[in-house]
Design a protein around this nucleic acid. Structure first.
Length: 304
DNA sequence: AACCCTATCAACCGCGTACGT
DNA sequence: CACGTACGCGGTTGATAGGGT
């Protein structure tokens, strides 16, 4: 008895998403939040399976996604994390705000792999290629001489795949072992992600004394500067949200009908975007990294 | 202009796992 | 504990764009 399909595929649409479908999905999730992907298509009127909706939202429509190529820093982080975690893309993506596992996986396969090979580094083991080349080339040379010209390419491809798979299994096991030992993730400069304390949204300290209204695209927003930021000129505390307890901060957001928060660090090196709906922070973002908060130059609250 | 090849990335598929009953 | 269901993850595929001939 095989596994049942995730959804009734008869009459369901496949392939690229249309603008209308995107709109339906965005509207539904912004109104109802992310819940029960299986039921979502019926409730939202989409002729897609829940899995497809989930993927489209996570990989493409989520408001907190970054666009464009990975920066040098991000790429280096991916390489460092891959060396420790292997092909566990979602784990790697969780360390890169605004990036998806799919995006990182694609970037790895299309850019980073080649780059590392050019540098003489095996992308799977992260060790110098020369150490492994000798033995492998010898074995492949014998096999190659036995196959016809036509078969060569396909066989080589399969061998490569098998080799890659073997290496990936090793990486996967390595990652598991590291996780078992609770080995913290660290980068070359000694920076350790596990050391970063996390804040809940209600712990955000922002000064609303300099808040001003202006419009942007379809949404309106309030721009707020951070009282803790060196770049902030204001030191007024009379109307500081930081004096509000967590519940009142949530209440403030609800009263203002805030749907989205954006923050930006003073040196523009980091920033983020979290969707806020019905008293909840969506997209699993219920905490913010301390580095973002301490170094905040601006916080924008979007409301409809 | 037409064709081919390669690179890119969105989307799909199937498996593993968590969770509820 | 066994089973069924839903979700998340990683591997793979396929459509498309862009460059070369």
């Amino acid at each position: 008895m095989g596994r049942q399909p995730c959804c009734d595929k008869v009459g369901l649409k496949k392939g690229p998403w249309t603008v209308e479908e995107d709109k339906k999905l965005i509207n539904f999730i912004l109104t109802n939040g992310q819940c029960c992907w299986r039921a979502l298509p019926k409730l939202s009127g989409l002729l897609r399976c829940g899995k497809s909706c989930r993927l489209r939202w996570i990989n493409y429509l989520r408001p907190d996604l970054k666009r464009g190529l990975l920066s040098e820093n991000e790429e280096q982080m991916v390489i460092d994390l891959h060396a420790q975690l292997g092909n566990r893309w979602s784990k790697i993506a969780s360390h890169l705000p605004g990036r998806t596992d799919n995006e990182i996986k694609n970037h790895w396969n299309t850019h980073i792999k080649k780059k590392l090979r050019k540098m003489g580094i095996d992308p799977m083991t992260h060790k110098p290629l020369s150490e492994q080349d000798g033995a492998q080339q010898q074995a492949q040379g014998i096999k190659k001489s036995l196959v016809s010209r036509d078969e060569k390419n396909t066989n080589q491809g399969q061998e490569d795949q098998q080799q890659t798979r073997k290496e990936e299994d090793q990486q996967h096991q390595l990652g598991k072992d590291l996780e078992k030992n609770n080995t913290p993730i660290s980068t070359d400069d000694g920076f350790c992600i596990d050391d970063i304390p996390l804040l809940s949204p209600h712990e955000i300290f922002v000064d609303i004394s300099s808040a001003h209204h202006h419009t942007s695209d379809d949404n309106a927003n309030i721009n707020i500067s951070n009282s803790t930021s060196p770049s902030s000129s204001s030191s007024s505390t009379s109307s500081c949200i930081s004096s509000l307890p967590g519940d009142e901060f949530s209440k403030f957001l609800d009263e203002m009908e805030i749907v989205d928060l954006k923050w930006l660090s003073s040196d523009d090196s980091s920033g983020g975007d979290i969707n806020y709906n019905d008293g909840k922070f969506n997209n699993n973002v219920d905490t913010m990294s301390l580095w973002d908060i301490n170094d905040l130059s601006s916080l924008e609250l979007f409301y409809e």
